[in-house]
Amino acid sequence: MTIRIENLSVTFDGFHALKSVSIAVDKGESFGLVGESGSGKSTLLRAVAGLAPVSAGTIEVNGEALLGNRRSRAFRRAVQMVFQDPYASLHPRQTVDRQLLEPLAIHGIGDGERRILKALDEVGLGSSFRFRYPHQLSGGQRQRVAIARALIVEPEILLLDEPTSALDASVQAEVLNLLEEVRGRHGLTYVMVSHDLGVVTHMCGRLAVMKSGEVVETLAATDLAGGRMVSDYSRRLMVASKGFSREVAPV
């Protein structure tokens, strides 16, 4: 078990963003968190990363219990995150080179030159992108840089917070393919948050459906796709994801 979360609660100024949530993610698994805004799916991810005020419960990653928002150096290297908005997650004043060098410098990893070129290559950006500033890149290219930045320290777990929802549908396919390819090559564990059932069932083996800070149900992606869900909410979400049609449109 790589990630084990038990009875986790997160409270922001009296607002219960997460209410006693438990999930477990196996090593090498791709796990999805689905829900609408306010369901707490992003909060859960941020709690693992140490970015949310945990009020109760335990988070265990690689057998190491995490206390509060403190994280060990090893954790910081083993767990990386990719954010939703590639326009906000790259420092606007730093070149791609600088952004990729930063994690290496923090973790005292040498051989930067080779690693940066390799990481850029891996995400499908050539070395010609190395000295560009974020404003010289498209949304998809930025997200590739963000993925390269996460991969450069050779992590085991990637936390993906809606990595494609800010991108065009056409660019989304490219980024999703890249993420799958990278996972296959490095045997990474993914925890992916998304509001798009199509994306999650495509990317993940198992998923948890969340609603107002609680897990409604946890099921295999194939079960969801096959309509074998228990809760009404999952079913509603499923119908909504099929797209607009005049027949089911609420009157």
Binding site: A169, S170, Q172, A173, E174, L176, N177, E180, E181, L197, G198, V199, T201, H202, M203, L224, A225, G226, M238, S241, K242
Partner: peptide, 15 residues
């Protein structure tokens, strides 16, 4: 290029 529920296409066709 969009992934659809209940379909398994890996990798997705790219535009």
């Amino acid at each position: 290029c969009t992934p659809k529920i209940g379909e398994s296409r890996h990798p997705l066709p790219v535009l």
